[in-house]
Computed example of a mutant assay.
Amino acid sequence: MSTPSYNLEHLTTSYVQSLTDVLTQLNAKALALLVDTLLSMREKNGSLYLCGNGGSAANAIHLANDFTFGIHPKGNALKVEALAANSSILTCLGNDIGYDNIFSHQLKVKAKHHDVLLILSGSGNSQNIINAISEANKIGMTTVGILGFDGGKAKALLDQPFHFEIQDMQISEDTQVILGHILMKALYEELKHE
């Protein structure tokens, strides 16, 4: 086994400290508003749509699972769909109408005004994310995002932005899952007696 050319202990300590520091930016009142938004959506039989690119797409699929099962194992959970989960749809739309429209077109076809869009984005600047937010706003959906870096173009377009100012894609993606898991636990507490 070769000796690494970097200090792994320092890398580990630095990463954990950066993640810990950035999580202090989470606003509990804003999170409570999002819980209320999702409960209201559920009462109106609405759906939660999630989207992201790369690791954020994987996080969207992960959280769709948590919101489908984790908040109410008996089935009284949220109606939720990760827009990046169907490779046939993604490749069709990417090929036929362009990658920038892979999420917005799905919303145009499926979404209603009482639904919620949750975007996960490190930069907040991907055109397919901006187009999805624009389409959701046209429909009258509530738009929510978990963003890193400077929040990008997406931040100003969202009804409920959660912005973690961190110049690190991996930590930005970590915040998506952590905030999602906090939401899952909060929704579980809200719904466990139903």
Rank of each mutant, 00 (worst) to 15 (best):
K155E: 13
S18Y: 02
Q167K: 14
G46T: 08
D159A: 14
L191K: 05
M1I: 04
L48H: 08
H113A: 15
S121Q: 04
T37E: 14
L63T: 06
F149K: 12
L118C: 05
L31R: 04
A154W: 05
F162E: 01
V144C: 12
Q17P: 00
T24C: 10
E194V: 10
S172E: 02
A156L: 12
L23A: 03
T37H: 11
P161K: 08
N95D: 12
I139F: 14
L90H: 00
I182V: 15
P161L: 10
K192G: 05
L83S: 00
D174V: 06
S104R: 01
S40G: 10
L90Q: 03
A111W: 10
M41H: 07
Y49Q: 09
I171T: 13
L11Q: 11
A64S: 15
L8F: 14
A132T: 03
L93E: 03
D66P: 07
T24S: 15
V22Q: 05
S56E: 02
V80K: 08
I61M: 15
F164E: 02
S88I: 08
T142L: 08
L191R: 05
K138Y: 01
G94P: 03
S172K: 02
G98A: 02
L83M: 09
T142G: 03
L31A: 06
C51K: 02
S5H: 11
D115V: 10
N86C: 11
S123R: 08
T20D: 05
F67K: 00
K192P: 02
S14F: 09
V80E: 10
S121L: 04
H163A: 07
A57S: 12
G52M: 08
T24Q: 15
L19G: 01
D115P: 03
D174E: 09
N95I: 09
A28F: 07
N137R: 15
I139K: 10
N131Y: 08
I178Y: 08
K29G: 13
K44W: 00
A28W: 05
I130F: 11
G152E: 04
K153L: 13
L120G: 06
S134H: 06
M41C: 15
L50M: 14
K108H: 14
L118I: 09
G140W: 04
K192T: 02
D96Y: 07
L11A: 11
L187C: 06
S18E: 10
Q25H: 13
E173R: 13
E194Y: 14
E189R: 14
S123G: 15
Y6Q: 09
G52R: 01
Q167L: 04
Q127Y: 00
V80I: 14
P73E: 15
N53Y: 07
S56A: 11
H163G: 00
I102H: 06
V177L: 13
N59D: 15
V22P: 04
N53T: 06
L33K: 13
D66A: 08
H114R: 11
A77Q: 07
